[in-house]
Design a protein around this nucleic acid. Sequence first.
DNA 1: ACGCTATACATCGCGGCCGATGTATGGGCA
DNA 2: TGCCCATACATCGGCCGCGATGTATAGCGT
Lengths: 180, 180
Amino acid sequence: MRTMLELAILGFLCDTPLHGYELRKRITALTGHVRPVAESTLYPAIKRLEKAGLLARETQAGAIAAPRHVLTLTPEGRQELRKRLAEPARGDITDENRWFTLLAFLRHLDDEAAQAAVLRRRLAFLEEPASFFYDGDRPLRAEELDDPFRRGILTIARATSRAERAWLHATLASLSGSAR
Amino acid sequence: MRTMLELAILGFLCDTPLHGYELRKRITALTGHVRPVAESTLYPAIKRLEKAGLLARETQAGAIAAPRHVLTLTPEGRQELRKRLAEPARGDITDENRWFTLLAFLRHLDDEAAQAAVLRRRLAFLEEPASFFYDGDRPLRAEELDDPFRRGILTIARATSRAERAWLHATLASLSGSAR
DNA sequence: ACGCTATACATCGCGGCCGATGTATGGGCA
DNA sequence: TGCCCATACATCGGCCGCGATGTATAGCGT
């Protein structure tokens, strides 16, 4: 539970009811180029969420091909989505894949102050002096590495971090509820 | 099998023999700030690799605390590492986490042409016109989105992609074996 | 009439990840 | 002396991801 996939399902269904196959296409469009979604992962996930009462299924016979199961988010599902967005696990903040998924649905948190708080958690993580390579405790800079590939990791990570920090600052400033 | 974790184990052991606990510290330093490594994931992975004949274990009694198992890469392990570096799965190319792990050990591929081929696969992936959001089939640009958070995803991804493509071009040019 | 592809859902079994928990030992500190 | 922490390894159970495979229908080309 609390996986990227479940968040995406809840997030997409928050906009509009969908059947599983359409849900799959949307998730594939969102993150499929990085991590494909297998149907054998999606359908069990839908079942889990249904069993937990987070979404409801309404069978729609013979629409085009096989009978569709149109999935609708329940009030509990909406509640759960907001909770997962407002109180993300640490991994949702640190892992870029999970973070992007969260960002894709963060607008469903209607409270701007809560949105800003989440962005600030990511910002705090990016401002930690963490590297991929160390000399004892001291994080190494790209220039200090001989290996060109490892130098690449730091170069790319630094560019990403700079761009994201700039975006975070700008977005936090534009959120009216961002006052600490 | 063929997981990020196994690649990291093989990669670190290719430099020098290590015991599990030290291996864990090194993997944590490398990728732990993004995805922590649980001991209950590491030790089974070591066992798997040992059973597959990729590494050998030598018990070193009462060094500091509990008896250590010093792990050494076998010739088959070295072979397997090279194979995983030279012929990465698609996910190793597309998923940044896995890609970074691969990059961290790519120097163990002694053939510069093979290294360049791997970099070119990543470059080809980055040059695909893939987005996170579409209007039908057409990838949307950041400016076309209303949602500020989704705009952020594209802004950040674009900055990363630019920086990485620049680095890839520069590094490919400096690899003498990079001639097509 | 035949085969291919897309739509739409589903199950099974393997295997990996992980939190919880256990077992030792040695060093520091109060 | 008592306690915590770091070192060092290990197992267990549950959940999740996923490739393989199955079932059915509708549309299209040949």
